[in-house]
């Protein structure tokens, strides 16, 4: 499998990373991504027909906490680093539904 420039655009859109509108500027990026994809595709050599995917690097059960309120109550801290905030809320360009 390899990606073309259109696929790179689609992926960049999904990842919300602006890329150049000029296709020529995307050629080297496309080539690089394909080199990496071709390289990782050597995994196809491995017979994994009876193997389950690894789910976790630790063998333990999921810890479940008690239903107690232990956090919150500091809205100023929540917005402290925000590039734009108003009334303890984050400000973004108007979102239409």
């Amino acid at each position: 499998m390899s990606v073309d420039i259109q696929t790179v655009r689609r992926i960049a859109k999904l990842a919300r990373i602006q890329v150049s509108e000029n296709d020529a500027d995307l050629e080297s990026m496309t080539t690089e991504l394909n080199a990496i994809l071709n390289w990782v595709e050597q995994l196809e050599e491995v017979d994994t027909s009876n193997v389950s995917p690894m789910k976790s690097a630790v063998e333990t059960s999921l810890f479940q906490r008690a239903d107690k309120v232990t956090d919150g109550g500091y809205p100023e801290k929540i917005v402290k680093n925000a590039p734009r905030a108003q009334d303890n809320m984050f400000v973004v360009p108007r979102v239409v539904e």
Partner: peptide
């Protein structure tokens, strides 16, 4: 580069071929 690769290998139609395959190899 890595965000794009990661987005691609998780995207519809490629998840099994890349991500699941890699997790099997990891096993």
């Amino acid at each position: 580069r890595r965000v794009l690769i990661g987005t691609y290998v998780l995207s519809a139609g490629y998840y099994d071929a890349y991500y699941i395959k890699a997790q099997k190899v990891r096993s």
